[in-house]
Simulated scan of single mutants.
Amino acid sequence: MKVIFAGTPEFAAVALQSLHEAGFEIPLVLTQPDRPAGRGMQLQPSAVKQYAVSKGIEVLQPLSLRMDSKDPQRAEEAKAAHARLLATPYDVMVVAAYGLILPRSTLDIKPCLNIHGSLLPRWRGAAPIHRAIEAGDTETGITIMEMEEGLDTGPMLLIERVAIENSDTTGSLHDKLAALGGKMIVDALNKMKAGQLQATVQPEEGVNYASKISKEEAALDFSQPAVEISRKIRAFNPFPGAHGTVNGVNIKLWGAEVLDGGNAQAGKVLSADAQHGIVVACGTGSLRLTQLQKPGGKRLPAAEFIKGFPLEGLSFS
């Protein structure tokens, strides 16, 4: 089978590598344009582009695939991309975290399969891994689905489940799901080739939308229950990084344990020493902060952090 692949971040690059190593012919890869990144804000290629270039696979980076865009440049790039797709012999398009909307004109060329990082229809949308952890879900998984114009509404082809451990962050869960997605898309295409892939319509109940994560969400409100704050810390690790403010200094919080008790004012640092660790009162219960980072510094265990940033008697806001 000839596969055109569309994706951008590391999650997608893992799937692309799996397809390539499984022997599928990949004549073309679509990915988003290079973006400024790092301290120097130099243009950086996506993880998908880096892998494709390393394997000599042609890469196309249109700003849009919508030929009816009101932006002349985007419309022209979309027309060129559409013409390139029509001129490229392929059997199926595989999409994973591409970041651009596929219009009907693209979906109508050949079948399009999507690797989605949740158990549909539980979390449709841009940030299913973050939202599953934030909501306290005990499991998630990968759904291989047929793409249609709706947002993650297409029929489901394959589903596999993964437990969400209490220690999982978005980073660790991402890696588990990326590996699973790579394995599953290879299985799905092999079954498609053999005529063994069956579609199941998504149920209408249980639909939630995993909206894109904003940096503003990462500012913690310590009047919330400790268990909810702990989930946010895990959900926003590694991006955008949950944080609280102490004496006007923005402190990022990368790890925490939920404790009972803590009837003091929410945000009050109850202890900050080597014996008890950094314990902060919350709306309900309290948190023992285990890993913190001050501006310009490194992530540090709590015992190391308080050596350079005493917190005894202070409050988070």
Results as ranks from 00 to 15, higher is better:
residue 310 P to E: 13
residue 253 L to P: 02
residue 252 K to L: 06
residue 238 P to N: 04
residue 199 A to T: 00
residue 221 D to I: 05
residue 102 L to G: 05
residue 220 L to F: 15
residue 132 A to L: 01
residue 309 F to I: 03
residue 205 E to Y: 15
residue 191 K to A: 10
residue 44 Q to D: 03
residue 175 D to R: 10
residue 78 A to K: 05
residue 172 S to E: 08
residue 213 I to S: 05
residue 94 V to C: 04
residue 181 G to L: 11
residue 190 N to I: 15
residue 63 L to A: 14
residue 186 V to H: 03
residue 145 M to R: 12
residue 42 Q to V: 15
residue 14 V to T: 09
residue 21 E to C: 07
residue 67 M to D: 10
residue 169 T to P: 10
residue 273 D to G: 02
residue 271 S to K: 02
residue 18 S to G: 11
residue 58 E to T: 01
residue 54 S to W: 06
residue 141 G to Y: 09
residue 99 G to D: 00
residue 69 S to P: 01
residue 167 S to I: 08
residue 12 A to W: 04
residue 111 P to L: 10
residue 107 L to R: 14
residue 145 M to W: 09
residue 172 S to A: 15
residue 296 G to C: 09
residue 73 Q to H: 02
residue 305 F to L: 07
residue 229 I to E: 08
residue 61 Q to H: 12
residue 201 V to S: 14
residue 202 Q to M: 08
residue 114 N to I: 01
residue 110 K to N: 02
residue 223 S to A: 13
residue 252 K to M: 08
residue 90 Y to F: 14
residue 110 K to Y: 04
residue 317 S to T: 14
residue 30 L to Y: 04
residue 41 M to H: 03
residue 159 I to H: 15
residue 10 E to V: 10
residue 284 T to H: 13
residue 313 G to A: 04
residue 162 V to Y: 12
residue 223 S to T: 15
residue 77 E to T: 01
residue 41 M to N: 06
residue 92 V to I: 06
residue 148 E to F: 08
residue 24 F to P: 13
residue 98 Y to P: 12
residue 111 P to V: 07
residue 91 D to R: 02
residue 245 T to P: 11
residue 161 R to I: 00
residue 283 G to H: 13
residue 147 M to D: 03
residue 168 D to W: 08
residue 251 I to M: 10
residue 64 S to V: 03
residue 79 K to P: 07
residue 305 F to C: 02
residue 190 N to F: 14
residue 20 H to M: 09
residue 229 I to T: 09
residue 174 H to D: 15
residue 299 R to M: 13
residue 297 G to L: 05
residue 316 F to G: 00
residue 272 A to F: 10
residue 141 G to E: 02
residue 23 G to E: 07
residue 58 E to W: 01
residue 229 I to L: 14
residue 150 G to N: 10
residue 138 T to R: 14
residue 131 R to A: 02
residue 95 V to T: 02
residue 67 M to K: 13
residue 173 L to E: 00
residue 256 A to T: 03
residue 194 A to N: 03
residue 30 L to N: 01
residue 248 G to F: 09
residue 311 L to I: 13
residue 215 K to A: 15
residue 244 G to H: 05
residue 65 L to I: 09
residue 46 S to H: 09
residue 217 E to L: 14
residue 225 P to T: 00
residue 237 N to F: 11
residue 104 R to W: 09
residue 56 G to N: 01
residue 257 E to D: 13
residue 294 K to D: 15
residue 91 D to S: 10
residue 161 R to P: 05
residue 39 R to S: 07
residue 141 G to Q: 00
residue 276 H to Y: 07
residue 128 P to L: 03
residue 159 I to N: 11
residue 192 M to R: 14
residue 294 K to I: 11
residue 13 A to F: 00
residue 23 G to Q: 12
residue 152 D to C: 08
residue 219 A to V: 15
residue 86 L to V: 12
residue 18 S to I: 07
residue 196 Q to V: 12
residue 189 L to A: 13
residue 24 F to R: 08
residue 267 G to N: 11
residue 137 D to H: 09
